[in-house]
Amino acid sequence: MQFKLIINGKTLKGEITLEAVDAAEAEKKFKQYANDNGIDGEWTYDDATKTFTVTE
Rank of each mutant, 00 (worst) to 15 (best):
M1A: 06
M1W: 09
M1Q: 12
Q2G: 08
Q2K: 12
Q2H: 13
Q2T: 12
Q2A: 12
Q2R: 15
Q2S: 13
Q2I: 05
Q2M: 13
Q2V: 15
F3H: 02
F3L: 01
F3V: 01
F3E: 00
F3T: 01
K4G: 04
K4P: 00
K4H: 06
K4R: 06
L5T: 01
L5M: 08
L5P: 00
L5Q: 00
L5G: 02
I6W: 10
I6D: 02
I6Q: 11
I7Q: 02
I7G: 02
I7C: 03
N8H: 09
N8L: 14
N8G: 05
N8K: 10
N8F: 13
N8V: 04
N8Y: 10
G9A: 13
G9T: 14
G9F: 14
G9D: 03
K10T: 06
K10P: 03
T11Q: 10
T11G: 08
T11V: 15
T11H: 05
T11A: 11
T11W: 07
T11R: 06
L12P: 06
L12K: 10
L12M: 11
L12T: 07
L12N: 07
K13R: 12
K13I: 08
K13G: 15
K13V: 11
K13F: 07
G14M: 10
G14N: 03
G14D: 05
G14Q: 07
G14L: 14
G14Y: 10
G14T: 07
E15G: 09
E15F: 12
E15Q: 08
E15R: 09
E15N: 14
E15Y: 11
I16E: 09
I16W: 09
T17L: 14
T17V: 15
T17P: 04
T17D: 10
T17H: 14
T17I: 09
T17R: 07
L18E: 07
L18C: 04
E19W: 09
E19V: 12
E19S: 12
A20Y: 04
A20H: 03
A20C: 04
A20N: 03
A20S: 07
A20D: 07
V21I: 14
V21R: 06
V21P: 13
D22E: 10
D22Y: 14
D22V: 05
D22S: 14
D22M: 05
D22Q: 06
D22G: 07
A23T: 15
A23Q: 14
A23F: 15
A23Y: 14
A23E: 10
A23L: 06
A23K: 04
A24M: 09
A24D: 07
A24S: 13
A24W: 14
A24Q: 11
A24R: 09
E25F: 10
E25M: 08
E25Q: 09
E25T: 14
E25V: 13
E25P: 01
A26G: 03
A26S: 02
A26V: 03
A26E: 00
E27N: 07
E27P: 00
E27R: 09
E27T: 13
K28R: 10
K28T: 11
K28P: 03
K29M: 06
K29Q: 08
K29R: 06
K29P: 02
F30A: 04
F30L: 08
F30G: 02
F30S: 03
F30P: 00
F30V: 10
K31T: 06
K31C: 03
K31N: 05
Q32L: 15
Q32N: 14
Q32R: 12
Q32K: 15
Q32D: 07
Y33C: 03
Y33W: 14
Y33L: 05
Y33M: 05
Y33F: 07
A34D: 00
A34Q: 02
A34Y: 02
A34E: 01
A34V: 11
A34T: 08
A34M: 05
N35D: 12
D36Q: 13
D36F: 12
D36C: 08
D36Y: 14
N37K: 10
N37G: 05
N37T: 11
N37Q: 11
N37V: 07
G38E: 08
G38C: 05
G38K: 14
I39H: 04
I39T: 03
I39D: 01
I39M: 09
D40C: 08
D40L: 11
D40I: 06
D40K: 14
D40R: 12
D40S: 10
G41A: 02
G41K: 01
G41P: 01
G41H: 01
E42A: 12
E42P: 04
E42Y: 14
W43N: 00
W43C: 02
W43E: 00
W43I: 04
W43D: 00
T44A: 13
T44R: 11
T44L: 11
T44H: 15
Y45H: 02
Y45Q: 02
Y45E: 01
D46E: 11
D46K: 06
D46F: 09
D47G: 07
D47M: 12
D47Q: 07
D47V: 10
D47P: 15
D47T: 08
A48L: 15
T49W: 05
T49E: 06
T49F: 14
K50S: 14
K50L: 14
K50Y: 11
K50T: 07
K50D: 04
K50V: 05
K50Q: 11
T51P: 00
T51L: 04
T51W: 03
T51I: 07
T51A: 03
T51H: 03
T51Q: 06
T51V: 15
T51C: 04
T51S: 11
T51F: 05
F52I: 01
F52C: 01
F52N: 00
F52L: 01
F52P: 00
F52V: 01
T53M: 06
T53N: 04
T53H: 09
T53S: 15
T53Y: 08
T53C: 04
V54P: 00
V54G: 00
V54E: 00
V54L: 11
V54R: 01
V54H: 01
V54N: 01
V54Q: 01
T55W: 11
T55N: 09
T55E: 13
E56W: 12
E56T: 06
E56S: 13
